[in-house]
Design a protein around this nucleic acid. Structure first.
Lengths: 197, 197, 197, 197
DNA sequence: AATGAATGAGATTTCATTCAT
DNA sequence: CATGAATGAAATCTCATTCAT
């Protein structure tokens, strides 16, 4: 049992890494097998097929991520604090766990569209964390009332996602995740606020 | 001569449509040929290979787009106006050519990273339009001095890109491109401004 | 009429050149068209297909070659003289007309086997020039009686053909056709003679 | 391990047979697969591509052949004996493995010239066996001093090669390899000797 | 459970040949 | 007659998946 799960994790972990590096369609199942140190066939003992690997990564890693966000956000007293914690948690994740970061990059954007019959409930859950913070901020009269949370959450997600991508792909040295986080708080944070704040 | 260019366009147009619908890796060259109403082989009279088709879409459409942005931005008097014009032009483009928008949003992001030997100079040119507006705004003392243009341009690009993607992929009806544009101006626009403005 | 034949020749000439350079299977019909300065389709006005080009080269050029040999050999008084004239004519041809030389190289060896329903009568005629010289030499008691003309003619053909190929393909500068000819006469010539000569 | 080599051999063997029958360019990879009793894709587990198959035949068989020649030639006391052993070995080889002989005779000549980036070191090694015998014969004063070994080796190679080709392609029944060998020894052997021998 | 050799469907690409202009 | 753009059949090669060991 224990053993079995270990091998499964090893494969999943390898898949994340390789998908992130080469993209879903350019990754051969054999690449993942090599990275995981198992035989090609072994992968099919744990996953139905290549698509299933992608979906599993998503499902399982997303659970971790959602759990982490929820735990951290509990400590906040208002939407403004929540937003900051959200950003900090996000960039901390990106910085600390390259592979987890790659899940965001690979999974949340890439290939998702083409795994036909799969709907990303967990991705919506994730997005709604942002959406909920916005709504809470509007209720608390901290954030502008005229914001459309539907669009605003996309703006925020897109902004941090792109900055993270750049940090991951680019010469990491261009800027630190800390700087990135501060910059996001400056622009997005201020952009959401009521005029008089 | 004339004829030749027409056929080329027809193929490019078909490619945009099919790539947008099915994704680059799920599109067969035969699909494009059928959509364009030509034989499979004909495509290879105009394009080196399937990759070249994607790259050509990017290069040629990007030229149009860059040209359009430059023309429109000329009319602006200051960075704040420029930013607004930039956003409006962007969402107008997205609204007017959905297939092209989709290829840019979904396919180029996914695939281009992995197309060998291809560097996205034009993408950098595009990004730098945003970067230049930010710098100009700082010079004009309209935008905050403490912004890092390198990060800020990514934040902006990511934000509008994601909103556009959502508009394209999503049920379209969730919001209009006009609303999206206004929302972006509200959040990003305000986020960049000096405190006293 | 005249015009028509000129274009036909131009194509045939181009085909010889390109086949010789790249080999039959690596030559595209378009290559020949370009070399001949005509359109691809034009070739099909003069030749049935690509195979027909190869066969036509063979038929027509072989007639020239056979005619030349016959004319020259008339002047010889005995088999020994004939053999020398044959060798000299051969290497003269090779030396003087690179394209004719290439016919030997390309046509007599290459691809011939795979043009299924085609039998090379003219190639046999050519080989029989050598065979006849050998038989005549045996009748004249100049050449050894125990030679098998069937095999001997192949030995001779193979020897000169290979030397010619080397001269054509190799750094032509390794040896001259004159040296080659002398060497052939030394080895083959002497090899055929009766002991006491 | 053992198994793996067996399959590789089976494919190589099948390739020799089919190339010999139909020619390199007329052979489909699927033909070889069928002959070898494996799936098309299996061939690509053992060989890079179709060219590699031809090159591998050449390289590997040439090694065997070179080894055989060297072993046999050791037993000779002088150049004259060496030459005879060389011829006998050559025609023995031709006689014993007709398919391989055919590939060497017909296919490598035709195709190899056009296989990119491939240099026939082993073919030169093979040619130099003849060249070395000639030089040794000259040193031993058995062969004529006025021979140019460069040309002479080509004459000899061409002669036996063509005789072998005729034996392979032709009606076999025209002559035996033994007869061919004797004929070659008669003509070439004698042609090389000093006058007084 | 694990392996990895084998499979074979399927995609890209080439190029001889045709035919409308 | 000549053109050369267009065709589409056919061949190579890849790689997700299977299955005997």
């Amino acid at each position: 049992m224990r053993r079995k799960q270990e091998k499964r994790s090893k494969i999943l972990f390898a898949a994340i890494k390789v998908f992130a590096q080469k993209g879903f369609y350019n990754t051969k199942v054999a690449d993942i097998a090599r990275e995981a140190g198992v035989a090609d066939g072994t992968i099919y003992l744990y996953f139905k097929n290549k698509d299933d690997l992608l979906i599993s990564i998503f499902e399982e890693k997303m659970d971790e991520i959602l759990g982490l966000f929820k735990a951290r956000l509990k400590k906040a007293n208002n939407a403004r604090e929540k937003l900051e914690i959200f950003f900090k948690t996000y960039f901390r994740l990106i910085n600390d766990d390259q592979d987890l970061a790659e899940v965001f990059q690979v999974e949340l954007r890439q290939s998702s569209k083409f795994l036909k019959d799969y709907h990303h409930q967990k991705f919506f859950d994730y997005l709604n964390i942002i959406g909920d913070i916005i709504k809470q901020g509007q209720n608390e009269k901290i954030f502008r009332q005229d914001l459309n949370p539907l669009i605003a959450k996309r703006i925020i997600f897109g902004a941090i996602d792109e900055v993270a991508r750049q940090w991951i792909l680019g010469a990491e040295s261009e800027f630190s995740t800390d700087e990135a986080c501060r910059e996001v708080i400056k622009i997005i944070g201020k952009g959401l606020l009521q005029n008089r704040n």
